[in-house]
């Protein structure tokens, strides 16, 4: 079905201490598409997405074998720089986590740590990122207000804008809507659908309807195995694996 992808993952195994959490996972993730990862709690989908930008490096006792290549480069090879990888592969988390700074400084943060000091460039990046994250109209008057005064949904869009500001190629979403109400969720989903024009998107979600609504490809994880991976429509209409069918029809999970 897919031959060339931005990410190709080969025989990925991962452990937390002695716990084997990902088993022989192979996957190809295509550029400028949305790939959703679903599965019951503890199935390894969050661990998987955090392998894609080496966020798991921060966890003591985490270990991994296999290969993840991004644009042809093995991101776990000794030459790969996790700092550079995380700049190119951004991430939005489950709980909105804006810094306790102003809206402006939240977005400028990423650029400043790469040494951008030019005020005009920062202003422009802040405006563009907020526009792309569909937050500009709501906050353009109060850019210097503390980000924590925003609502949960606005905070999450701010986090998306913050990720966009450093101009990544991929944006990873780890259950971005699980702390949000339905209206805020709908806004984020709209946004994700728009973002795939410019970015490759990978999203972990608990919500199967969400996966069906926003994604082009869906992977179903079960106890650390990638049980099935296919075009989203196929997964939700004619899954090949009995487990997938049981899960999406709500027989467990």
């Amino acid at each position: 079905m897919v031959d060339e992808g931005v990410f190709s993952i080969l025989k990925l195994n991962a452990w937390y201490g002695k716990k084997h959490v990902l088993k022989e996972v192979d996957m190809t993730i295509r550029a400028n598409h949305v790939t959703a990862l679903i599965g019951p709690s503890g199935c390894g989908k969050s661990t998987f997405i955090r392998c894609l930008n080496r966020m798991n490096d921060l966890i003591p006792d985490f270990r991994l074998t296999g290969e993840i290549t991004h644009e042809g480069m093995d991101i776990y090879s000794p030459e790969a720089d996790p700092i550079e990888i995380r700049r190119r592969i951004g991430m939005v988390f489950q709980k909105p986590n804006p810094f306790p700074k102003s809206i402006y400084n939240n977005i400028a943060y990423g650029l400043r740590i790469f040494g951008v000091k030019d005020k005009k460039r920062l202003d422009k990046a802040v405006e563009e990122s907020l526009k792309k994250a569909a937050l500009w109209e709501e906050v353009k008057e109060n850019l210097h207000q503390n980000a924590l005064t925003l609502s949960g949904g606005q905070q999450q869009r701010l986090c998306i804008a913050r990720a966009i500001a450093v101009n990544p190629e991929v944006i990873l979403f780890d259950e971005p809507c699980s702390a949000l109400d339905p209206i805020a969720t709908a806004k984020i989903e709209d946004l994700i659908a728009k973002l795939k024009k410019d970015y490759t998107v990978v999203i972990v979600t608990h919500n199967m309807q969400q996966a069906a609504r926003v994604s082009d490809f869906t992977g179903f994880f079960m106890l650390g195995d990638l049980a099935e991976f296919d075009v989203t429509e196929k997964i939700f209409t004619t899954p090949a694996n009995k487990l997938t069918e049981d899960y999406i029809t709500g027989r467990f999970g």
Partner: peptide
């Protein structure tokens, strides 16, 4: 300081 705050910065490529 909550880990998710730190993760937010790490995910932007902070050292």
């Amino acid at each position: 300081v909550p880990m998710d705050l730190k993760e937010g910065a790490y995910a932007l490529g902070a050292t």
